[in-house]
């Protein structure tokens, strides 16, 4: 698919940056003229992906989160969220709704479920000790 526009955002995995990350991605995605409901879905999905990096990937220390956003032809939004944290040993298990390894922090274990439900496509690749990459796609306005 042809890339119409793109940007990269790199920031420290600090909880203070969660709001900044989701707001920035939505501001860029606004070029596709999404409606309020679509903006809300994107904002929530990005928030979940970034929070996972902060809560899980870098639970033992600091690190960097990189987000790539592409606007593809056909009004398709592509978002990639990467970390170089601890990785996920069993991605399938981690994606089960209500599964969490951070119960003490009152995590609901719904991060991936939200991403999957609020976006059209979700893919997760991970290597223990190397990091995790989450990619999401959403067609805005039925591809208008």
């Amino acid at each position: 698919m042809k890339v119409m526009n793109e940007f990269e955002l790199k920031f420290r995995a600090k909880s203070e940056n969660e709001s900044f990350a989701r707001t920035t991605v939505c501001a860029f995605a606004a070029q596709l003229d999404p409606n309020i409901s679509e903006i809300s879905d994107i904002r929530t999905a990005v928030s979940e992906a970034v929070t996972n990096c902060i809560v899980h990937a870098y639970k033992n220390g600091e690190g960097t989160v990189v987000i790539n956003v592409k606007l593809l032809d056909g009004n398709m939004l592509y978002i990639k969220v990467r970390d170089k944290g601890c990785g996920i040993a069993d991605v399938q298990k981690a994606m089960e709704p209500m599964y969490t390894t951070a119960e003490s922090d009152e995590r609901a274990g719904l991060g991936f479920a939200v991403m999957e439900n609020f976006m059209d496509k979700l893919a997760v690749t991970s290597k223990p000790g190397k990091g995790t990459t989450v990619t999401m796609r959403k067609r805005i306005g039925n591809g208008k």
Binding site: R22, R43, E48, T51, E106
Partner: peptide, 13 residues
Amino acid sequence: SFMDSSGIGLVLG
């Protein structure tokens, strides 16, 4: 103005 699944953890807790 915004809530992600952290709010669910908050309610369940």
